[in-house]
Amino acid sequence: MKKSRFIYSWLLFVCFLNVKYAEPAEAQVSAEDEFEDYLSSIEADFYNFEDSINRNFADYLEQAWQEFTVYEGTEPPVYAGGLFFTGTIETTLVHPHDSFFGSFLHFPYMVEEGLSLSGLSEKNIADGWRKLGTVDFTSFFRAYTGYSRQFSLNDWGNYQLLKYASMQLYPSFSPRERTLFLFYALSNAGYKAKIGRVEKDVLVLLLPFAEEVYKLPFIKAGEEKYYVMDISSKQLKKLYSIMADFPKAEKVLSLHISEALDFPENEIGRKFTGKYPFSLSLNRNLLDFYATFPLCDLSVYFRAEPSKTFTNSMDKIVKIHLKGKSRP
């Protein structure tokens, strides 16, 4: 992704020079003959730069991690009638081995040999990162980007997509190996993320959110909160992690849905009683996706772009109740 922008910018620069400083035809022919070699050298420089970032970050991971206090998750606000949420929080993917919210996806096969965490020492984690850094993920991220666009995924959807991919590509991974893969994939996809070691045998993923998130335990890295993902409800008091993020990771994951998610239709009906009873059609795949959300502020839901199924169903209901009514 970034590679393409890098190469395209060089192409534009070279074209600009060729137009502004046109040379005799003989010189142009010579330049064209060398053009492919020139592009190859640019691409080689790019990969060397990418490799150096991963190597340097692996060296950083090998340094001693620091202890962080784990804070209890923030309680949600109280509204008239009590809390707007009661129950348990669910952040795992619904039926991850079957489909991705109604679609069976296929990612390029990735060799899983080599990534084996025999322990969770700083050196174990750094070596694991180095092993992932030797894998060519170009085709993987191309497929990831394509699916993200196909379903109009938001940041949380991208995270769920990478979780699904890890289960499909690496079914034999242990939970901690999958956590390291997610850390690597999210970081190289541009999202801020950390990993933390709980006691001696548990590796957890830590994510910051652009919106307020409730009931999830978190650590503080500077002014930023990093929430502990996919862990049991046991009370955490401390964990060990790193302070810095991967250099290319600049995006903070957002739960906001600015574009209607485009999952396959799996229509289910819901009946509502009251003064104006009505039946509503909903997409079960979309409901399953919302079920993975961490508990967050109501504005995330209120501002979300509705699906076509919901919009069409509501249009019919409103028209029925407005039929025969006079204009104000």
Rank of each mutant, 00 (worst) to 15 (best):
R270G: 14
P294I: 07
P294L: 03
M314W: 05
A221H: 03
L287P: 09
V300G: 03
G274R: 09
Q235V: 00
L280K: 12
E265C: 06
V198S: 07
Q235L: 00
P217C: 03
S174T: 15
K234C: 00
S233W: 03
Y276Q: 12
E199Y: 14
P208E: 07
I231N: 07
L282T: 15
E177F: 08
N188E: 05
V202G: 00
S174W: 06
K308I: 15
L205Y: 14
S281F: 00
V213L: 09
I242P: 00
K238G: 03
F181R: 15
N283W: 01
Y276P: 06
E265Y: 02
L280G: 13
V198M: 10
L286R: 13
K192D: 02
Q235E: 06
V300M: 04
L182Q: 13
K251L: 11
E212T: 11
L253A: 05
R270K: 15
S279G: 15
K248L: 15
K275G: 08
L280C: 13
S254K: 06
L253Y: 08
S174R: 10
I242E: 05
I219A: 07
A260D: 02
L298G: 11
C296E: 02
Y240M: 12
A193W: 10
I257V: 13
L298H: 05
E199F: 14
T292L: 06
A221Y: 05
Y184S: 06
S232H: 11
N312H: 12
L203E: 08
E177M: 02
Y184T: 09
R303P: 01
D230T: 11
D245R: 09
E224W: 11
F181C: 12
K215L: 00
K234Y: 07
F278M: 08
L236R: 07
L203V: 13
K225R: 15
K248Y: 12
Y290P: 01
V228Y: 06
K271D: 09
E259S: 02
Y227C: 04
S232C: 02
A291G: 02
G196Y: 01
A260V: 02
Y290V: 04
A249R: 01
S281C: 08
P175W: 10
A291S: 12
V252R: 12
R197V: 10
D288L: 01
F181T: 11
F310E: 02
A260I: 02
E224K: 11
E177T: 07
L206E: 11
S281A: 11
G190S: 04
M229H: 08
E224A: 14
S174I: 08
F272I: 10
S313K: 10
R178I: 00
S258K: 12
Y170L: 13
E223H: 11
F289C: 14
L186E: 12
G190A: 07
S232W: 05
V252H: 03
G274S: 08
F278C: 10
A189Y: 14
H256F: 07
S232G: 10
L207W: 10
K251Q: 15
K271V: 04
K237A: 06
K194Y: 04
P171A: 06
V204T: 04
F183N: 06
Q235T: 00
F209Y: 06
L287D: 09
Y290C: 02
P264V: 06
